[in-house]
Simulated scan of single mutants.
Amino acid sequence: MNPHGEGFVPVRWRPQGRAGLELHSGPRSLALSPDGRTLYVLNRFTGTVAVVDVREARAGNARVTRQWPVVDVRSREQRRLGQVLYFSDVGRTGMSCDACHIEGHTGGVFFEKTRPMRIYRSTTALGSRDTPPYFTPASTRSLAETAETVGGRNRYHNPDPLPSEVEALALYTSLLPTAPNPYRGEDGAPLETVTLPDGRTGHPVKGLALFEGKARCMACHPTPLFTLDQDPSTRGQYQDVGTPIALPLRLEQQQLVTGAAPPSLVGTWDVWPLLTSATAGYAVQEDRLVVGSRFPLRTLLETPGLSHGAAQELTAEERDDLLAYLLTL
């Protein structure tokens, strides 16, 4: 995208003769004109829409003719550098932050790493600023430590991130918010009745009473962020509530550890699959992954043998009310 244009962020690339200084505009959304002659590209890093003449694209002669400013991003240079680092394969290893945490979120992505050797579900980074420790298993105590550890690993430590890159990447990640909640009213207040993803209905206010009382959810998911990790005195506590340790997929090749840290419930309505094992959402069929549930929260409450609070003691109507409340968080 037009390396001579304004507002591009330079990123230090792998230096061993493979590439020099690179420029990134962060193209994301594309739209082709009806006549097929012009391509419009939204550049997330530079806050512009690039107008590309593609009449001779097949011959390799596409060219940027102009750029429309959409938003001024130059006043937040450090955040913008962090954004570029998040999405860029700086070490040319085929790995980046976005490879596992797509757009900062989770898309049912799995990854494998050692210590212990096993398959892990990629978690969301949205809204995670106030709930360290990070990573799986929880091993880093701040977003900066995570950026340094994972960023260096993504590049195979060639090169390791500079302190300025770590700071910028941590800042960008800390500003990733949860998505607007469709299960709340326009004013942000809970609705009187919520239609659940499977078509049933529930009452969030009744669900709140159950959450704080009969269902016994508060022990592991206290307010305001609904996780023990929000408080330094209760951080990093692994709990065993009977949830599956892993999907039944090549278990003999994995080193499995019982227990997991209770995640924040904020934004859970938009997370799939759930649990460290991803068993609330995924299933295994003949040695391959398939979708087991489109509504993983219900799976958590209704699967026999799981000890999530007192969910098994609730009536069907009470579970609907509790689910309606959880969707509003």
Rank of each mutant, 00 (worst) to 15 (best):
T234P: 11
A99G: 13
L126A: 05
L85W: 03
N2D: 14
G188M: 09
D35A: 09
T268G: 04
Y282W: 14
Q78L: 09
R76P: 00
V52E: 10
R66I: 06
W68S: 03
P177H: 10
T38M: 11
N154K: 06
G213I: 05
W272D: 08
P15Y: 02
W13S: 10
R63V: 15
Q255V: 13
R74C: 03
L265N: 04
Q254L: 05
V9M: 03
L126G: 01
L323V: 06
L289V: 15
L306C: 03
H24F: 11
D231Q: 13
R298F: 14
Q237E: 10
V51E: 03
D53N: 11
V241R: 08
Y86A: 02
V284I: 15
P180E: 10
P15Q: 09
R294A: 08
P244W: 06
H203G: 01
Y120W: 09
R55Y: 04
R153H: 10
L265T: 05
L169K: 02
A209Q: 12
R319V: 03
H221P: 01
T146Q: 15
T65E: 14
L162D: 14
L289S: 08
G94N: 05
P34K: 04
R184F: 00
L196C: 02
T146P: 00
L176C: 03
R118M: 07
D321E: 01
A209S: 14
R155D: 05
T124H: 08
A261Y: 01
P273N: 06
L247M: 09
V70Y: 07
R118T: 14
A316Q: 15
A311M: 08
D287K: 11
S293M: 02
V52A: 04
I119C: 02
L327A: 05
P204S: 09
D53R: 00
V266Q: 06
P263E: 09
G47H: 04
G242R: 07
Y134G: 00
A31H: 07
E286A: 10
